[in-house]
Nucleic acid binder design. Sequence first.
DNA 1: ACCTGAACACCGTTCAAGT
DNA 2: ACCTGAACACCGTTCAAGT
Lengths: 212, 212
Amino acid sequence: MPAPERTTLDAIVRAGRDVLEAEGLAGLTMQAVATRVGVRAPSLYKRVADRDELVRLVAAATVGALAERLAAVPESADPRRDLAELAATLRSFARSAPAGYGLLFAPGPGAARPDPAQLARASAPVLRVAAALAGPDDALDAARTVTAWAHGFISMELAGAFALGGDVDDAFTYGIARITDALASAGTDDPSIGTGARRQASMKARTASATS
Amino acid sequence: MPAPERTTLDAIVRAGRDVLEAEGLAGLTMQAVATRVGVRAPSLYKRVADRDELVRLVAAATVGALAERLAAVPESADPRRDLAELAATLRSFARSAPAGYGLLFAPGPGAARPDPAQLARASAPVLRVAAALAGPDDALDAARTVTAWAHGFISMELAGAFALGGDVDDAFTYGIARITDALASAGTDDPSIGTGARRQASMKARTASATS
DNA sequence: ACCTGAACACCGTTCAAGT
DNA sequence: ACCTGAACACCGTTCAAGT
């Protein structure tokens, strides 16, 4: 006698994202999600192994949404402009879903990190623009530099760590401009710096994607 | 009839740090800490209001330790070298206490963030070097840029987000070199970029400290 | 004045019993 | 084949009772 399905994994993950943003990670309980999808908590275990897996699925869905947003940034003839646009898009995404964003690079073991392949897919546009700006040999290092800066800035901003006054928007504009300068000029000046970075010609053999 | 004190706030916080690194944030329970200091869990409430406060105290102690390490970095005649040294020290500190480091800019509301003044004190050396490199007017923005990059890089590294191969140490070296270049040359070239950043002459009136 | 056992609320998780 | 109530372990927190 088959019983009707009263929810789906998709609905559970969507509810999880909503609860996460509304109540924070501590509020993301099995009960809260179950109530939201209209079942009792034990029923969730038919679709997810445990709470950790639910959190991982929420993180994965968040990365997917981020990848979509970054991929939608139009490509112009100016890589500098594109990089600034990508950074602004990342920041805007983080502001729209701060708790979910916080999951992406969450510290600690057994954390909710989405799998690397997905992060790589999300950062593909950054790698492409970084290659245009810094050249193919430095593309990976350049992408890692700008991604690290953007993520660091955003996570510090969300954590309220910019507490000394000054305009934070200005700092963001300043930062992306400086970093773009640096990546664009690397390889064309001062060969004594960054020499060790020009290696790894095999990088082009990889799929065109990178978390950094 | 006074009862003897069987522990101290200091011992509790120290035990909290140890448990945090050994068992992760989820393992940082009142019971675990109580056992470690030799009392029962309810006794902890004589010294800390609740678990959240304990976590905050652990985070504050971690910032204090970080401030000490950064302040111990010797000042040379070369700001570029000093900045690289500060970044390497931050990275080394994060590796020695990854769970504690993860607390510093933890996302989410009600988080364990240490108070801004403490973060500011820890970043004072960075602000000083940034001023030497980028000039006093751009010091704050420059410090924010390098701090954001370093924190972003470290948190991504700890999260295992650099998954595309390539040498991560090389990427760190590349990043700090590029950023140092960018901050050093800002204000001395291309006046069309970063124009908006040169403002705020009042910054010098602040105490010489900044989280960024 | 601090420490403790007992108690309560809450959460994750399991499972036998329903349909 | 999925859903549920009941149950258990575990944790945070309170509090009356000890010393």
